[in-house]
Design a protein around this nucleic acid. Structure first.
Lengths: 216, 216, 216, 216
DNA sequence: AATGAATGAGCCTTCATTCAT
DNA sequence: CATGAATGAAGGCTCATTCAT
């Protein structure tokens, strides 16, 4: 087993132990036991326990970052949004252990760590928020505080995935995507050409037929 | 300072330290330092570190349990839902430290503990899910998997409150309530009597001008 | 309840707790709980935990010292020895708790303490040894190392009393005295002047007259 | 130093500290200081403080168990009894520290522990008692309550060894064996068929051929 | 590189003792 | 005198990290 493989083995072992026990309850002894290496070996590949955890979280962040595409309002928005949801769900459900770490166990750590994780989510929310704002400009997103809407979205997604990561009743992947999409759509997306459902008081509704429509 | 006051002081101190550092990073030394008592005093009031934490979580559960009212579909549903949202928000924002504990730091603990907290959320979701099912029967809730809708709702609420508990930019309380309410309403509530806004794939979207509008 | 009574109550409570749990496992909390006084009160009557224990041991020593009489070889030795045995047994069995303390729990303490207790036993053995030497001079004690004989005697007595102090099956007091006396008598006492000191009732003398028998 | 050696070193260190200070006063810090290892090392070899103690006691029990032979009444009883005494004395005096632990410091511990030690002694006494009963059947042991005689014997032996374990004046080993043997023989052994069981050289056996007298 | 024995700082908890009321 | 809340030193044990082999 070469260096890279051993490193991977340790990362996988760490991931599983962290996911099962949480950061503090996961002992280095447990990790090396799972990886079937000696304790000292662990420290040949990682400077300390913290950094393995950190690396795992970073890895998931990368995957998520790579999966999420900026929505181009000029193209088929529905499809892009669905694609994004699907991609995120895929990344997270493909590695439930890592997901569990991110969603549940990444807390109660150094403030530095919590900050890091929060930063990621903040990034996601900001990105989403900007997209939503753009969508509002184009009339395909209901008016409203986009920051809040982003928060709602992320929260709903996290909760859903957390539930599935815990894993008692794993939902069908596409079902999750569809349901969440519909929820969002009926919530603040105005993409389907279907009903308007403004999320917040629309001042001056107007009856003028000139009114711009989405997805007509 | 009598026994009850001292107990309260210790609980408050523990709450703050747990909220800031998380369970494992919170040392009994920190707690007693904040409470300005000797270490032994802590153990006069609580059998161990775990139990203070447990008590804090229970306390919040109780408050939340007391705040949430079962929605009576016969009466003004909007008002009741808003009231519930407002009550929950009030409980949690009144004690951001405790909220932080519940939302962030209660994980990575004994499985027993995680189970306990999950049980609480499961309870909330089940209750909500039942209400939603009843609402569906009455036609004031969009069709769909009520369990999932409940998950979305709880997730959105948690995320929102977590963000506020972290506390950099506390939103106006009523703004939170309104925004969330609107989100839910446009999402799956059909209380306004107006248009349906189906939560799940709407067959035949239509472009008919007769299309019903909400909030016109 | 006056000062003396309270002091006695505390001593009794301490005695019982020490006897049951041993010195280290006996907490001041236990003692005051049994005595039904507050913790601080304990320290009004005794400077510290150690000294109560010490006082209890001293008390028993005093009683034993008072009970044991120097044997006068001129008078009826048998009776005096029996009396001594009886007296010692009486003192110790009258207060099994205190006995348990002396025999079992007085160890594993400060070297100072162990020394004290050993001193007592040394005193007893020395006294006994001197008596035995005098007895040897008078021909009523078998020759031999009197120090050793004293040790045997004390050991046999201690073991017997320890067994009874533990108290599962308390022997009849007089039975103890008789048995021990016979043991000693057949062992090294030559007091009866009579036959080879039958340890117990002699039944069935034997058939072969040729072979010298004991206990014929 | 390999694992076994280190383990032995720790056991020895623990034995000495326990023997000197007793269980409660012996701190793990003391033990590792004597063994010249770090505190953590102790816990690599033993799960806790209790278990070292337990192991030490067990060790001595084993040695004693191995040393004591069931007496075969068909063969030379005297020799066998002497051998047993010699073996026990050898085991205990070879390791005075361990002996001290067994005889003095094994008390005042968990009831579980006290029970264990008492069980051992009970076992010894029972074994001895059975042998004595068998001896009575064969006419080589004086009649009497064998349980009591066993208690006396064990007590005498314990006291003797305790005295020697404390170690101010170590007696010659064979002297101990002889003296104890004579004590027992004159006490309840009827083995030699020889003279009327004088505890020690009988001067002037008597004139009357019919009735053997001692010390008349 | 790999091993795993050794390290020791640090934590939770206990409990004898003190002291304000 | 009596109380019992408060104190804080001390001890058993854990575990991340180091290092000799």
């Amino acid at each position: 087993m070469n260096k890279t493989e051993r490193r991977q083995a340790l990362l996988r072992a760490a991931r599983d132990v962290f996911a099962t026990r949480g950061y503090h309850e996961a002992k280095v002894d447990d990790i090396v036991a799972v990886a079937k290496v000696a304790k000292g070996t662990f420290y040949l590949y990682f400077p300390d326990k913290r950094s393995v955890f950190s690396e795992l979280v970073d890895l998931l962040f990368q995957r998520l970052g790579a999966a999420i595409l900026q929505v181009d309002p000029a193209a088929d928005v529905d499809a892009q949004v669905k694609h994004n949801i699907r991609a995120i769900v895929a990344v997270l459900l493909d590695d439930p252990a890592l997901t569990r770490i991110l969603l549940s166990h990444a807390t109660g750590m150094d403030p530095a760590f919590v900050t890091k994780i929060r930063s990621f989510y903040d990034g996601v929310k900001t990105m989403l928020s900007l997209s939503l704002a753009e969508g509002q400009r184009l009339g395909i997103v209901a008016p409203g505080d986009t920051k809040l809407l982003a928060t709602f979205t992320v929260g709903a997604l996290k909760e859903l995935l957390a539930e599935n990561a815990v894993g008692e009743t794993p939902l069908a992947r596409e079902a999750i995507v569809d349901t969440l999409f519909c929820f969002l759509q009926a919530g603040y997306l105005r993409t389907g050409g279907s009903s308007p459902a403004p999320a917040l008081p629309v001042t001056a509704p107007s009856v003028t037929p000139a009114r711009p429509r989405r997805r007509r």
